[in-house]
Amino acid sequence: MTRIVAGAAGGRRLRVPPGETTRPTSDRVREALFSALDAAGAVDGARVLDLYAGSGALGLEAASRGAREVVLVEVALAAAQTARANAAALGLPGVRVEHERAERFLAGPRAADGAGWDLVLVDPPYAVDEEALAGVLAVLAPLLADGATVVVERSSRSPEPRWPAAWPAARRRRYGETSVWTVHLDGPGG
């Protein structure tokens, strides 16, 4: 069972997409991740982008904890439909779902509107290779707000993501088979 851990929708259950197209982040990992993000002041009032959103659990957790705007981007149709259903069931304000490839969304006008993204959650399928992930991070860099936070979730067997050159060192936390890499940027895009 996947659920929202805390905030306005805390304890509410989330549907997961049918089949094995997604790998939901465990409640334990989300709880630890969002405790750290909350402590850093990275969630409340933030514009949040959830790439490779799956069921929407990460982005919806941010919305539950006070994010001002949350965009869930997911290419798999069943997962995007599940994310929409979860968002509708929770009724949290400021949440929308984009059924599109992460790379295509980032290159389009909807990614660049507004003041930049404050918090970006990147949880690609483990099959997404390091080169593709590095490309997404490079395209993402100019779309970030000053002082943005970027979180990447990968298999613990995966190497550290290749960050854009101007970005500071990432902090890694390991939770069994899952590693979470967090970068806090000082200025726009790094």
Rank of each mutant, 00 (worst) to 15 (best):
T21D: 14
A46R: 06
A148L: 07
P161M: 14
P188K: 14
A79E: 03
P109A: 15
D44P: 03
R28A: 14
G189R: 11
D38P: 04
A132T: 08
A127G: 02
A111G: 10
V95R: 05
A8V: 06
T25F: 11
D118P: 03
Y52D: 11
A138P: 03
V151Q: 10
A39Q: 07
A9C: 10
A89M: 08
V29I: 10
A83Y: 00
L143Q: 02
F105T: 05
G135R: 02
V70I: 05
R110C: 12
L33F: 09
R101P: 00
A36G: 04
A166M: 06
H184E: 10
R30H: 11
A115I: 01
R110V: 13
H184L: 04
V120E: 07
S179I: 06
P24Y: 10
L77Y: 13
G189F: 11
E177C: 05
L51N: 00
G189D: 12
R174D: 12
E100T: 09
V16H: 12
P142Y: 13
A63D: 02
V180F: 03
M1F: 07
A132R: 06
V151F: 08
A89V: 05
Q81P: 09
Q81R: 15
V97H: 03
D186K: 11
A8W: 00
H184N: 06
A134S: 02
P93L: 06
R171F: 09
R12L: 00
N86G: 12
P17F: 04
H184I: 00
R174V: 15
E74L: 09
A88Q: 15
G108H: 13
N86C: 12
H184Y: 05
